[in-house]
Design a protein around this nucleic acid. Structure first.
Lengths: 375, 375
DNA sequence: GTGAAAGCGCTAACAC
DNA sequence: GTGTTAGCGCTTTCAC
C-alpha cells in the first residue's frame, strides 16, 4: 500500500508534503493542521498529527518566514556583552522574547559605528521583525532612521536619540547624577570629580547616558553654586591604562578631589586600583559613588555606594513594547520611558569636615533605598 | 521608456526580479551577479549592480537559506549570560562568527533541561547550521544526540559529555583544582573546603566542570593522604541565601576549614560576605581561591588568588571549529580540546603555621603566572 | 553569457 | 472541510 516514495531521503527533514502523503491528504490540509489555521475535520487532523509525529516533522521556520514575511526574530545590537549591565539586559531580552515565541539574533559593536551599521545591515538581511539597539552614537543615526521607512520597528535601549522618534527605554541619568552629586555636596564635598571611560572626541557627541550624567553632575554643582572645575571631569577613554594615568595625575595634583562619581562600575574598578596604589583610603581620604550595581560592589572594603539602574525592567519593557508593535498591539505614538535609578547607600561616602560638624556615621549605612518606579 | 511597473510597491524591499527588470536582464542573470556565482559579462554585471544600487537592493537571506539549505546562522545555548564567564564566551562567539559571515541566535536555559530541550528545538526550526552549547546535564542528552543524525554539527563548550562524541572545548578542571588544592596543602592547609553553587541531586550527575573540580580536589587530598571530610564539600545550590546558610553553619562548627576552594566567582562572593559577617579575615583566618577571574577579584581586600580560565580562547576555538565543520574544512574525527587554567597568585592565601615555619609573605604576590597553552 | 523553468518548504486565495 | 493553485525570493540545471 505504501508507495516507495514513502522512504525518506537520506536524513533530510520531513516536509509538509511528506506528512500530507503519509496522512493521505493534500498539502493544503496538512499545512492547515501543522500551521494551526483554517478549518479541518478533527479526525483528519488527528491523522495528520499522527503522521507528523511518526515522521518527526519539524516546521521549517525559514520557509514559513519567506512565505509570510515575518520571521519571529528580533535583532539586538549592543556595544558589549562583557559589561554585567548589558549582560543582564540581554538576558532579560532573550527571556522575554522567547516567552513570546521570538528568537534573538545578537550583534555586538564594540562602540564602533561602522560595525554597528554593518550589524544592522546584516540583521535586515536576515529579515528580523524588529530591532532593539543601544546605539553607539547619538548623531550618526542615518542607518537607524532608514529603518522606520522600511517598516522595521526599532526600540532604543539605555541610550536616547531624540532625533529618531523611536520608542526609548532608558534611565533618568540626569536626575540620578544630580541626586548623587547633591548628596555628596550635602556631605560637605565641593571638589567632586566625574570620571568616565567615554572619550570626548572633539565635535563628536557623547552617548546620551554619559552626556546626561555629566549634565546632572554640572547642574548639581551649579545649583549649589560650586564652580565646575574642568580638570575634575576626566574622560579616560575605553583604555583602562589611560584612564588610570589621568586619575593618577589628577590625584597627585593640587586639584585633588575629595569625591568621585564614576559613570560606570568598570571606571570604579580603575579608581579603586589607583587609590590603592596611591595609598588613599575610601571613604576617609576620598569618597566614591558609581553607576551600576554589580554584585561585587557590596563586598569591597568598604562596600560601594552605587546608583543602581533598573536595567532588567528596562530591557523587559523594551522587548515587550517591540513585540507589541510587531503584533499590532501598540499605539502608534512613539514614547520615551525613563525609569528612575536608585541610590544605594553603602560605605564609600563620608563627610568632609571643613567646618566641625556633628559626628556622622561614615560606616556602611544599610538605609532602605527609595523605591523605584516607572515614570 | 520606463514601464509603470517600475514603481516600487509601498516600501517593500527590492527583489532580484525588480533589479533584473531595472537592468533589463533576466532574473537568472541578476541572481548570478547579486549572488556572485556563475559567469556573467562584465558589462552586464555593471548594469545589474547599478540597478541594485539605485533600488537599494538587499538580498533576502531567508529566501536564500530556504533555497540553499544553509542559513549562515549558528545557535548558541548557555545557562546564563549574567555570569561574566559566559558573557565573555558569547562575546567571543559573536565576534568570531560575524568575522566569518555568520550570525548568532542566542538562547539561555537557566540550567533547566526542559528549557534547553525547547531551545534546541526552536533553533532547529530556525535551521541553524550548527550549535554551540554548554549543556545543563551530562546525562540527559538525547536531544543533543539526535542532532548528529540530522546532520546539525554541534560543539560543546566548557562542559563535557563523553557519550556524545562531539567536538568539545573545555578547561582542564581536574588539573586546575588539583593544583590549587596541592598548593594549599603545600602552604600547610589540611582542612580545605570546597564550595559550589551546584546541587547534588540524588542520582543526578553534576555538570562535568563541577564534577571534575571536585575530583581534582579529592585527588589532591588523597595524594597528600589527607582524608576527605564530606562536611567540607558544600553544595549550596543556585540560591545564594542557601549557600550562605550552609557556609555559616560550617564556619561556626568545629569542622571549620582553614581554606576554601570556590568553584565559581559568584560562590567566592558569597563566601566573602559570610566571612565578613563572621568577622573572619582573609587570609589570616581563612584562605580562599576561586575559579574564574572577573575584574573585581583584583581589587578586593585582599585581592583574590584565582584560577583563570581561558574562556575567550575556548569560545573562539569552538566557533572556529564549528565553522570549519560547516564549510567542510574540518577533519571528520571529533576531538576534545582541553586548555590549561592558570593559577594567579594574589593575596587571599596564607600559610597555616601548625609547625613554626620560616616567615613567608602572605601579602599580594605578583608572581608571574605560568604560561597557558593549548593542549 | 544568458534565459526559461523548476524547485526549496511554506502560506493563502479560491474553488468545489 | 478539502484540494488546487499560485505565490514568497531566491538558487540552479539545462538548453540555446
Amino acid at each position: 500500500m505504501i508507495p516507495p516514495t514513502e522512504i525518506r531521503r537520506g536524513g533530510a527533514a520531513a516536509t509538509v508534503t511528506d506528512v500530507a502523503r503519509a496522512a493521505g491528504v493534500s498539502r493544503a490540509t496538512a499545512a492547515r493542521v501543522l500551521g494551526d489555521y483554517g478549518y479541518v475535520n478533527v479526525e483528519t487532523r488527528e491523522r495528520v498529527l499522527a503522521a507528523a509525529r511518526s515522521l518527526a516533522y519539524q516546521a521549517n521556520q525559514l520557509a514559513k518566514s519567506v512565505a509570510t514575511g515575518r520571521s519571529k526574530t528580533i535583532g539586538v545590537v549592543v556595544a558589549d556583552i562583557d559589561s554585567p549591565y548589558f549582560a543582564r539586559a540581554i538576558r532579560a531580552i532573550t527571556g522575554t522574547a522567547s516567552a513570546h515565541g521570538f528568537v534573538v539574533i545578537l550583534a555586538t559593536t564594540d562602540e564602533d559605528i561602522e560595525v554597528e551599521r554593518d550589524a544592522v545591515r546584516v540583521l535586515l538581511t536576515k529579515r528580523v521583525d524588529g530591532l532593539i539597539i543601544s546605539p553607539t552614537s547619538s548623531s550618526e543615526v542615518a542607518h537607524l532612521a532608514r529603518l522606520s521607512e522600511i517598516d522595521c520597528p526599532i526600540v532604543l535601549l539605555d541610550r536616547r536619540v531624540p532625533q529618531l522618534r523611536a520608542d526609548t527605554f532608558a534611565v533618568d541619568n540626569f536626575r540620578a547624577a544630580y541626586e548623587a552629586v547633591t548628596m555628596l555636596i550635602g556631605r560637605g564635598h565641593t571638589d567632586i570629580a566625574l570620571a568616565s571611560n567615554a572619550l570626548a572626541h572633539p565635535g563628536q557627541h557623547l552617548i546620551s547616558s554619559v552626556r546626561e550624567r555629566i549634565d546632572g553632575y554640572r547642574a548639581a554643582l551649579d545649583d549649589a553654586e560650586i564652580p565646575v572645575d574642568p580638570q575634575l571631569v576626566v574622560m579616560g577613554g575605553a583604555e583602562p591604562q589611560n584612564l588610570a594615568h589621568e586619575l593618577r595625575v589628577l590625584c597627585s595634583s593640587p586639584a585633588r578631589p575629595t569625591a568621585f562619581l564614576a559613570t560606570e562600575s568598570s571606571v570604579a574598578l580603575v579608581i579603586l586600583n589607583v587609590l590603592r596604589e596611591l595609598h588613599f583610603s575610601i571613604p576617609d581620604d576620598v569618597s566614591l559613588i558609581c553607576f551600576n550595581n554589580p554584585d561585587w560592589t557590596s563586598i569591597t572594603t568598604p562596600p560601594l555606594t552605587v546608583i543602581s539602574q533598573p536595567i532588567k525592567e528596562l530591557a523587559t519593557a523594551a522587548t515587550e513594547k517591540l513585540i507589541a508593535r510587531l503584533t499590532g498591539a501598540a499605539s502608534n505614538v512613539r514614547k520615551e520611558t525613563l525609569l528612575a535609578a536608585t541610590l544605594i547607600r553603602r560605605g564609600s561616602v563620608s563627610d568632609v569636615c571643613h567646618v566641625q560638624r556633628s559626628a556622622v556615621l561614615t560606616s556602611p549605612q544599610p538605609l532602605k533605598p527609595p523605591g523605584k518606579s516607572m515614570s
